[in-house]
Amino acid sequence: MRHAVGMILLSSVILTGATLPKKGPVPVAKPATLGGQPTPMPRPPSKPAKARDGDEGLANDASKAESPPGKGEDLPQKDDALPPPPGSAAPAEVIVPVKTESAEEYASCLAALRKIGSRFTEAARIDDGSGCGIDKPIEVETILPGVALSPGGRMRCRTALALATWTKEAAAPAARTAFGPDTRITALNQASTYVCRHRNGASTGKISEHAHGNAVDIASFELADGKTIVIQPRDEDGTLTGAFQRAVTASACLYFTTVLDPGSDEAHEMHLHLDVIERENGYRYCR
């Protein structure tokens, strides 16, 4: 029966001179009706919402998937995992105990620090709980002869030695080149050394490198002529002051494993974050 109806329709098309349509989109069937009203089509399944980026303060730890392993202090991080189901417990915070330092490496570092001309005092072991502390801390007063750390601060010897070496070999020569051969740096004004806190002052997340004695934040440089070079956004600063800041920032990555400057994020607009966190394969993060 269907074959006969089809033949009749085809004959009708040929007799009337009509042509069959060329290849094209298949006509969409009209929606079925129910009681004279169109029957609603089913909605397509919605895609699951993507989790919002996490924020540990800028930069948070860089050991997450989107960043190289062990990326250091205060780096921004994302967490693309969907939030846990309602009622499930949040993952427990990982507490890293205070690391015991090698007595031989510590003694070698102290000798190098004395040789370069730093003034410091050895201090008692710090363990403030929650992973905060320094096994063998020192109180640094003077980075180099005639160059104070203002105010003095507690840190690991390794951090102090990196700071002193960078000041002597990179920052001091850059100041002479930028501002004249008689220019001397007389102080590094610091905004933070050892402090027990999470990264970028967040209420949760990983412990800051400051809490391990690995980090120091430099807010400004004092010069012998009374001039103060304040750390601030200077990427577009075409003056010698801008060139000096960019030079010391770039050179710092030769001495520290993390360098964050005002161009890295809002949390570092007014200081340089320098730390000596250890990473696999000697990786360094400089922004």
Score class of each variant (00 low, 15 high):
Pro181Ile: 04
Gln245Phe: 12
Glu236Asn: 15
His212Thr: 15
Ala211Ser: 14
Ile207Leu: 15
Ala174Asn: 07
Val276Tyr: 03
Tyr255Gly: 03
Thr249His: 02
Leu161Thr: 02
Pro262Asp: 04
Ala267Pro: 10
Ile277Tyr: 07
Val216Asp: 06
Phe244Glu: 06
Glu236Leu: 13
Ser264Tyr: 15
Val259Trp: 10
Ser208Phe: 11
Pro173Trp: 12
Gln232Arg: 14
Ser192Ile: 01
Thr204Asn: 00
Asp182Ser: 15
Leu188Pro: 01
Ala187Asn: 08
Ala171Ile: 10
Gly242Thr: 12
Thr241Val: 15
Ser220Phe: 05
Leu163Arg: 01
Ala187Lys: 05
Thr249Arg: 06
Thr239Ile: 05
Ser264Cys: 13
His212Val: 10
Val248Asp: 02
Lys168Val: 10
Ile218Leu: 05
Ala164Leu: 00
Arg279Lys: 11
Glu236Ser: 14
Cys253Phe: 11
Asn200Pro: 00
Lys206Phe: 04
His271Gln: 04
Ile277Leu: 11
Ala174Cys: 07
Asp261Pro: 03
Val230Tyr: 14
Val259Gln: 08
Gly242Met: 13
Leu161Trp: 02
Asn189Pro: 00
Glu269Asp: 13
Thr167Ser: 12
Gly242Asn: 12
Gly205Ser: 09
Tyr255Cys: 06
His198Glu: 01
Glu280His: 03
Ile231Val: 07
Leu254Asp: 12
Met270Ala: 14
Arg246Tyr: 08
Ser251Arg: 03
Phe179Pro: 09
Ala211Thr: 10
Leu223Tyr: 10
Ala191His: 08
Ser264Leu: 12
Val259Glu: 09
Leu260Phe: 15
Ala250Ser: 13
Gly226Asn: 08
Ala243Trp: 00
Ser192Met: 07
Ile277Asn: 08
Pro181Thr: 06
Cys253Ile: 12
His210Ile: 11
Val216Ser: 04
Ala252Asp: 03
Ile185Lys: 06
Leu274Cys: 03
Glu169Trp: 07
Asp225Arg: 02
Glu169Met: 08
Ala174Tyr: 04
